[in-house]
Simulated scan of single mutants.
Amino acid sequence: MSTSEPPRFDHLELERLLITFETAVKVRKRHQFYLWAQGSLQSFLPHETLLYGLGGPLSHDLRTEVCSRAVLSEEDVRRFNHGPDSLLQKAAQRWVRQGHQPLLLEVDTAGSLTHDMQALGVSRFACHGMPDLRSSHRHQPARGSFFVFLNVPTRNIGRYRYMLDLLLPHLHMAATHVCDNEHQGSGMPTTRTPSLSEREQQVLDWVRKGKTNLEIGQILSISPLTVKNHVQKILRKLNVSNRAQAAANSFKIAPQGAGKGTDEHPFAN
């Protein structure tokens, strides 16, 4: 655990922290994890993009996900999270070598990991994880987890490390709930192709072209807040965590009203 001194919280911060704890317990879907990570969690662990994986941090079958405010290309998602040479795996290797302690690193630190981060426009990142405490039991699945926060603030390093330690169990719990819930849902016999309304389809078309909420609002003559609400509904319907994944999965969309039932996809990529 971190040796950083506990930070001082005022009344409002303590209230927000309690809300962060309480809402983590309720996370069951990917879109709920996205809203929690990019909402209340940001108050204590500000970041641009969150990479996370479930399983043994160095295992080849690590199930991974990207949760980002930024618009990421599929190539970026692959380089961040997929395969033994991904940034997630390299960060996990560094974390293991450092004794499973919460890490904050600048990109000017020597090593291939920070070089790769710099190539992708990351100036500073933090990582921490939950070791797989049951890996020695052959018939039990790995339940470890690992989290990488990209483009974190340059101030209050000690506070950030402390909050990584404090919030790690809640991150692990929320991500595990998503995995368990969606894994069970993937076995349901009745599925359908997700459908979008005409307006949601228009918004997704412009998301696919890389437009921001403000730009889409100007094009469609609606407010950026309305666009944001449409984007959140699209993420839920497509069962994805960010705009890039929504664009990549747009081929699955059917006209509204087509099909019945539920559409659940496994957490694994």
Score class of each variant (00 low, 15 high):
Thr49Asp: 08
Asp76His: 09
Leu51Tyr: 02
Thr193Gln: 15
Glu74Phe: 04
Leu113Asn: 04
Val71Ile: 08
Cys67Gln: 11
Pro224Ala: 08
Lys233Pro: 01
Lys29Trp: 10
Leu120Ile: 14
Met188Gln: 01
Ser221Lys: 11
His47Cys: 02
Arg159Phe: 11
Pro153Gly: 10
Gly187Gln: 10
Ala24Asn: 03
Thr3Glu: 12
Tyr160Asp: 06
Phe33Ser: 05
Asp76Gln: 14
Ile222Glu: 08
Gly261Lys: 06
Val203Phe: 00
Asp10Phe: 11
Gly210Ser: 07
Lys233Met: 06
Phe149Pro: 01
Phe147Leu: 04
Ser221Met: 13
Val178Asn: 02
Gln101Trp: 01
Arg94Glu: 03
Ala258Trp: 05
Val122Lys: 06
Leu225Gln: 07
Ile219Glu: 10
Arg161Ile: 02
Glu13Ser: 02
Asp132Leu: 03
Thr3Trp: 11
Gly56Tyr: 05
Trp95Glu: 04
His177Pro: 08
Leu12Met: 05
Asp165Met: 02
Leu171Ser: 06
Arg243Trp: 14
Arg138Pro: 09
Val66Trp: 10
Leu62Arg: 03
Ser73Val: 05
Gly257Met: 09
Arg94Tyr: 01
His100Glu: 13
Arg94Trp: 00
Ala268Glu: 14
Gln140Phe: 14
Gly53Ile: 12
Thr176Ile: 04
Arg161Ser: 09
Phe149Gln: 00
Ile19Ser: 08
Glu15Ile: 13
Val148Phe: 02
Trp95Pro: 04
Gly259Asp: 04
Ser73Lys: 11
Gly111Thr: 02
Asp205Pro: 11
Leu14Trp: 12
Thr193Asn: 15
Gly121Asn: 03
His60Asn: 12
Val240Phe: 07
Val148Lys: 00
Gln232His: 05
Glu215Ile: 05
Ser241Ile: 12
Ser123Ala: 06
His183Trp: 11
Ile19Met: 12
Val152Ile: 10
Ala246Ile: 12
